[in-house]
C-alpha cells in the first residue's frame, strides 16, 4: 500500500547551521506526531547524520520532511537530495567504518539502523537521493 503524504516541508542545506535547522524542523514534526522521546531522538539523530552527509559529500542540497500515513500507521519520511558526485558503491557506503570524509563512517549505516525504511538512489556524477521513514 502506498503511503499518503499529509504534509511536507523543505529545508535547504547549504551550511552547518542549516543542519541544526533541519534537526529542529524534524524534531517539531516528530513531537507533533507524538513519537516517544527515544523515537524522536533516533529520527533527529538520523536527520542530523543524513543532512551532514548531504552537506559534506553532496556539496549541499535539500531535505524534505513529510508526515505520511499508511493505513492506521503514521510516520515521518525524510528525503535528502543533492547533486554531488554520487555514491559509486552503495553497499560499501552503508557498511560501518567506511568513510571518505574523515569521520567514523557511521553516518549512512548508522542512520539506516535508526529508521524503519531506508533507500538510496545514486548515480556517479548525478547526485544522491536518500529516503528514510520511521513509523510510529
Amino acid at each position: 500500500m502506498a503511503a499518503t503524504v499529509l504534509k511536507t516541508e523543505t529545508i535547504h542545506i547549504k551550511s552547518s547551521s542549516d543542519v541544526v535547522t533541519a534537526r529542529q524542523q524534524v524534531r517539531t514534526l516528530a513531537i507533533e506526531l507524538k513519537f516517544s522521546l527515544v523515537d524522536q531522538t533516533k529520527i533527529v539523530t538520523a536527520a542530523s547524520e543524513l543532512a551532514r552527509n548531504t552537506l559534506d559529500h553532496g556539496g549541499g542540497g535539500e531535505m524534505d520532511v513529510a508526515v505520511v500515513e499508511n493505513g492506521i500507521r503514521r510516520g515521518l519520511r525524510l528525503t535528502f537530495r543533492d547533486h554531488g558526485p554520487g555514491i559509486a558503491d552503495i553497499k560499501q557506503a552503508l557498511s560501518d567504518g567506511f568513510t571518505t570524509g574523515g569521520g567514523m563512517g557511521l553516518g549512512l549505516g548508522g542512520s539506516k539502523r535508526l529508521m524503519n525504511e531506508f533507500d538510496i538512489h545514486s548515480q556517479p556524477g548525478a547526485g544522491t537521493t536518500i529516503t528514510a521513514v520511521r513509523w510510529k
Binding site: 527515544v38 524522536q40 531522538t41 539523530t45
Partner: peptide, 14 residues
C-alpha cells in the same frame, strides 16, 4: 547523558 541519547548512540554504532 540522557537515556534516549544513550540508546540512540548505541543503535548508531557508537
Amino acid at each position: 547523558m540522557q537515556p534516549a541519547v544513550a540508546i540512540t548512540l548505541v543503535e548508531l554504532g557508537m
